[in-house]
Nucleic acid binder design. Sequence first.
DNA 1: ACAATCAAAATTGTATACAATATTTGTGCA
DNA 2: TGCACAAATATTGTATACAATTTTGATTGT
Lengths: 239, 239
Amino acid sequence: MPERKDAHHLHDLFQLPPGRTLDICLKIHAAILEHRLAPGTKLSEDEVGEIYGASRTVVRAALQALAHTGLVTIEKNRGAFVAKPSIREAHEIFEARALIEPRVARMTAKAITENDLARLQAHIDAEHQALHDGDMGKALSLSGAFHTTIADIAGQQVLAHMVRSLISRSSLIISMYWKRPDTACESHSHHALMKAFAEHDSDAAEEIQKSHLIDLHSGLNLVEVRQQHDSLKDILRTG
Amino acid sequence: MPERKDAHHLHDLFQLPPGRTLDICLKIHAAILEHRLAPGTKLSEDEVGEIYGASRTVVRAALQALAHTGLVTIEKNRGAFVAKPSIREAHEIFEARALIEPRVARMTAKAITENDLARLQAHIDAEHQALHDGDMGKALSLSGAFHTTIADIAGQQVLAHMVRSLISRSSLIISMYWKRPDTACESHSHHALMKAFAEHDSDAAEEIQKSHLIDLHSGLNLVEVRQQHDSLKDILRTG
DNA sequence: ACAATCAAAATTGTATACAATATTTGTGCA
DNA sequence: TGCACAAATATTGTATACAATTTTGATTGT
């Protein structure tokens, strides 16, 4: 179960002490990453509190922590919503990833152990399995986990924290702008990275990661997406 | 008053809606950046609440937001403290800055306007004035503001957010590990950067920023600092 | 039918009360 | 004096109550 292992590192994304606030953060975080919560969804304090059996105090703290990572947007007196990254934000996030992650991959190639390689391979296998099962959300989530695990292996916690945050937000971006929703997003890049890591070839790892991210970026359809619900009435009128 | 202008951008460091929670965040943030709050200082909820005339609810939210940026550490059932970055963290933060800020400087050199140049110059002047007045805290804070303003000018909000966060934490690092506490930290690098910006010389800007950050990094005395208060009794015993 | 307006309901913002956990203080004992 | 232990105090964690604001829904008039 690779997810458990990552969960251990995940807590530092929120910088919160163990407790129910953190639990709720992680649950909602996972739900967003697996695309079970769509961008724009209202996260009512009462509703979330009832689901997890917690009071508003705790839920509120969790939502504010999620807001800080950019996964949730809080509007004054209106509450919390799953974030809807703009096109500009999408470009910026992938530009940041293209800057940071290749460097991280270089460090990973130097530091990686046999055990780490096995962990990464487990991610790839699990992702493959999820795709086979038709669980797209899980597959995407695991694809992100592959990247965060690479950052963990690099052993640079500050950069790893940034990568985790960027990847979480990338998940939202993909759910909004991915060109081929029904297409497997698994490229051969992850396999190529594995090879470079196994050979401790840091130059290759950096280069592969860089082009992989450029590929991902260009796989996005970054044009205005029409909002569906707001104009629902108008849509029905025309029919 | 350049600070006012930056304050406008600063709110996004916390991703909070306007309100007293954000106000308290900004006040404590400023206090830490100006070294009026030393690393390790306990931030009691009641105490902070009384100072700013707010209830614990609001203060708590502010402290958690600050914790998320890494300026404050929250320990379960023990409360919030001004963070004390470890030596490892210090290295990692400056490594991250050396990766991100040169790239940002490159973008800035391309995008900068006359008005922006004036803003940057105002920072330099204010810093010089603060040094002249002997207000070291303010000077350091303004030195950081110079870097964050550069990031704002670059127009890449995601990277700018990261830079702001890194610089805030750098301020803590400097207060803990700076080699020459009584020495002016102003290098000629900022002036050299201004020249490169004015000439839209992005290659030079990137290179200067890179070596500037390496200089800063090497200006730190990254060895264990003895904690003073804990062993106060022992110290007095020996005397 | 449609728009405007206002009351009712629901939701968030904040303060406060109580419970759980640390910290401090004081006491007894070696 | 020094240490161990226990009561008292202080602080944080959580739930709840109330105020402020927004959203919803009904009513009215055109």
